Computed example of a mutant assay.
Amino acid sequence: MNAHQILSRTYHVAVLMGGWANERPVSLMSGEGVAKALEARGHRVTRIDMDRQVAARLAETAPDIVFNALHGVPGEDGTVQGMMDLMGLAYTHSGLATSVIAIDKELTKQALVPHGVPMPGGRIVDSESLYERDPLARPYVLKPVNEGSSVGVAIITEGGNYGHPISRDTAGPWQEFPRLLAEPYIRGRELTTAVIDGPAGPRALGVTELVPKSGFYDFDAKYTEGMTEHVCPAQIPPAIAALCERYAVDAHRLLGCRGASRTDFRWDDEQGEAGLFVLETNTQPGMTPLSLVPEQARQQGISYEDLVEMIVAEGLRVHGRLGGASDG
Rank of each mutant, 00 (worst) to 15 (best):
L38R: 05
A40H: 15
R47V: 08
A56Q: 15
R57F: 13
L58T: 01
E60Y: 12
T61W: 11
P63I: 07
P63R: 00
D64P: 07
I65N: 04
V66P: 02
A69C: 05
L70R: 08
G72E: 00
P74W: 10
E76V: 01
D77K: 05
T79E: 09
T79Q: 09
V80G: 09
D85F: 09
D85I: 11
M87A: 07
M87H: 11
M87S: 11
G88H: 11
Y91D: 06
H93C: 08
L96A: 15
I101Q: 11
I101Y: 12
D104K: 14
L107W: 08
T108K: 06
T108D: 01
Q110H: 10
V113Q: 09
V117T: 04
M119W: 08
P120E: 09
R123N: 06
I124P: 11
S129N: 04
L130D: 02
Y131W: 10
E132V: 11
R133P: 08
D134A: 08
R138I: 03
K143I: 06
V145L: 15
N146Q: 13
G148F: 08
S150K: 01
V151C: 01
G152N: 10
V153E: 04
A154T: 09
E158F: 12
E158W: 02
G159V: 10
G160Q: 10
N161E: 07
N161Y: 13
G163C: 00
P165K: 00
D169Q: 13
